[in-house]
Amino acid sequence: MAIDSLNLEDLRAAAAEIDRCAYNHEQWFDALIGTLICGLPPDKRDLCEDAHHRCRLGQWYFSGNEVTTALSKRPGFRELGMEHERMHTHTRKMLRAFADGEDIPHREYQAFISALKNLRMEIATLRQDIDDSLYAIDPLTGVPGRAHMLPRLREYQALVERGVQTCCLAMMDLDDFKVINDRFGHPAGDQVLVSFARHIGQNLRPYDAVFRYGGEEFLIILPDTTDSDGLAVIDRLCDALAQVPHLVGADDPVYVTASFGLAGLQVGIPVERSIDRADKALYAAKAAGKNCSVLWENSMNNDA
C-alpha cells in the first residue's frame, strides 16, 4: 500500500504523529546538549544498543502498523531509519566518552551532526509528502482525487510495458444521481457519495485503488488483473453497491446503483487513451440499462 492509498484520517494521524516525533526529538536534542555541556545526567536509554528503537520517533517508525507500512513504500523512509540509527550510534559513543572523562573526538561529533541534519531533512521531506497527499485527497469522500490518479496509472503502465503484470481500470458513474440531488437536496447527494466511496473501498481488494474522477464519477485501478478478471471484480462490486441502503430523509431507504466501463492498460497505448476507452464503455453500460458493467471493445470506436 503506497502513501497515496492512505485515507484522509490516516494521513492526518500520520502528520500529527510526525509533528509529535519532531517536537520530542528537539526536546531530546536539548537534553543531550545539556548533558554534554553542563554535565547533566544522560538519558539511560541513549546508552542502550537499541536506543533508536526506544525514543518516540523509533517507537513510531518500528511500530509496523498500517500507516508506517504504507509510508515504508515511499523513497526515503528507509533512509530516515538509517540516519536515525546512525545518529543514535554516534550519540552513544559521545556519551560513553563523556562518562569516561575523555574528550569527544571531533570526527564523532561531525558524524553525529551529519546524521542529525540528514534525519531532520528526511523528516521534513516525509512531512511534505504527507501534506501533498492531504492536498490531493478529495475532502468530501476521503479518497484520492485526480492529482494522484495519472502518476499511479503511469506506474502501472510502465509495468505493463515491461510485461511484468497486467492492469485493468474501471470508470464508474452513479445512476440517476441528479434525481437524488433534486429530490432530497445536495447534502443528501453528498451523503450518498461518501457512502459509495466507503463501500467501494470495503468491497475492493487490498491492492486495488479508487479515485474520485469528478462529480459522481470514480476511477478504479485493478492491478495484476486481466480484463476478464477485472470484469468479475467489478460485477461483484456493482451488485454489492446496489444493495446498500441510503438514509437521505425519505421514509424508506433509497437504493442507488452505478454503471461501470472497463478497459485494460495495453502496451503502446497511453493511459489517457485507456481512460477514454473506459469512458466509452461506461456510456455503453448506461445505454444497456445502467446498473451493469461493460468491457471496452474495438467496435466502440475506431481508435484500436
Rank of each mutant, 00 (worst) to 15 (best):
Leu8Tyr: 09
His25Asp: 10
Ala31Val: 13
Leu32Arg: 08
Thr35Glu: 09
Ile37Trp: 03
Lys44Ser: 15
His52Ala: 14
Arg56Ala: 08
Gln59Asp: 03
Gln59Glu: 07
Ser72Val: 01
Glu79Asn: 13
Met82Arg: 12
Asp100Arg: 12
Glu102Thr: 11
Gln110Arg: 14
Met121Gly: 01
Arg127Trp: 06
Gln128Met: 10
Leu134Ile: 15
Leu140Ser: 07
Arg146Thr: 09
Met149Gly: 00
Glu155Leu: 01
Leu159Arg: 03
Glu161Val: 02
Cys168Thr: 12
Asp175Ile: 14
Asp175Tyr: 10
Asp176His: 15
Phe177Gly: 12
Asp182Leu: 10
Gln191Leu: 07
Gln191Lys: 11
Val194Ala: 11
Ile200Trp: 00
Gly201Ser: 07
Gly201Leu: 10
Arg205Leu: 13
Pro206Ile: 14
Phe211Pro: 04
Arg212Met: 04
Glu217Cys: 07
Phe218Leu: 12
Pro223His: 05
Asp224Tyr: 08
Ser228Phe: 09
Asp229Asn: 11
Asp235Pro: 03
Cys238Lys: 02
Gln243Ser: 11
Val244Asp: 12
Val248His: 06
Asp252Met: 12
Thr257Gln: 05
Ser259Lys: 00
Leu265Gln: 02
Gln266Phe: 08
Pro270Asn: 14
Pro270Phe: 07
Ile275Trp: 03
Arg277His: 08
Lys280Asn: 13
Ala288Ile: 06
Lys290Leu: 06
Asn291Ala: 13
Cys292Thr: 15
Glu297Gln: 15
Glu297Val: 11
Asn298Tyr: 08
Met300Glu: 00
Asn301Gly: 13
Asn301Val: 11
